[in-house]
Design a protein around this nucleic acid. Structure first.
Lengths: 151, 151
DNA sequence: TTTACTGCAAAGGGTTTGCAACATG
DNA sequence: CATGTTGCAAACCCTTTGCAGTAAA
């Protein structure tokens, strides 16, 4: 499907080196965990999957990985950071967010809608003098679990 | 343009009463400040405009106002809450966000693009069992000010 | 006169940082 | 061996909460 099969670890290694950083065991573990998830995950979830890694290391490494363009950070309703692999590693997608519990599900958007967003994006970039890096089209509501449970 | 001109204060009062709350001076000051702004503002900014109001009161009142559906809270890149009036008081709009400094600008979206999002939203609601409350279509990039300044 | 609201100060909780020890190129 | 990385603990900062006093219905 892709023009070239991208290896996530090779890419991470390469991008970190470009920044004068090393692809350490801790960082590899984080990337593995993020690769295994099909949704953005919290730092707490990452630490649970990576026993022995200090919280500070997790935060620091995720920050370095974000700087290198390997992962992306996002914040939902519950004020905790969630991380996912950068879009050029996973493919462009969008999010379905529960405004009660902050959980996130990845969703895909029809191509024609995507195109509409892109052309709108270009227009706004020009009119506002922004350099637009990306967009997000999130659907926000209440997940089945939260709408069942009493308040 | 609107079928009926809506007064923000009347609406706030009404919605608070519905929740057994009062429309106090502090809350009126917050609503005035939010009405005057053409973008989501931080709690700190609100307090600066409302001298004498305790931070705790600002947070508590904004929370009550959000609960009553008068204001909406959003979180951008810098992990601080920003508030804006509820959409039925200001009209539906979207955001242009600077990923460096977290600042936000309100933007409008073409009607046809908006329609595309709505129909997509309905489809996802059905397929995922979500009750979808709203959506956000944010453009994210670097504002003119941040792309000029060093680093 | 009951219930909501307020300010103050303290606590909470996710995130960041100083530092000495460690590991990697 | 020079530089990046780690874990621990303390610090940080935005936000929330306990409480005693105040104001509104």
């Amino acid at each position: 499907m892709h023009p070239k099969q991208i290896d996530v670890h090779d890419t991470a290694d390469e991008r970190l080196r470009r920044d004068g950083q090393r692809y350490t065991t801790n960082r590899r573990v984080l990337i593995d965990a993020l690769s295994a998830a099909d949704r953005p995950v919290t730092v707490l979830e990452l630490i649970e999957v990576a026993p022995g890694m200090a919280q500070s290391s997790a935060y620091r490494n995720l920050s370095v990985l974000e700087e290198a363009g390997v992962v992306r950070r996002l914040v939902t309703a519950d004020d905790t950071s969630r991380y996912e692999l950068a879009e050029d590693l996973t493919g462009h997608h969008h999010h379905l967010i529960c405004e009660k519990c902050g959980s996130v599900i990845d969703i895909d958007v029809p191509a024609d809608l995507e195109e509409g967003v892109m052309s709108f994006s270009s227009a706004v970039a020009e009119s506002h003098g922004f350099r637009i890096e990306h967009h997000r089209l999130d659907l926000i509501g209440v997940c089945p679990s939260c709408s069942t449970s009493a308040h």
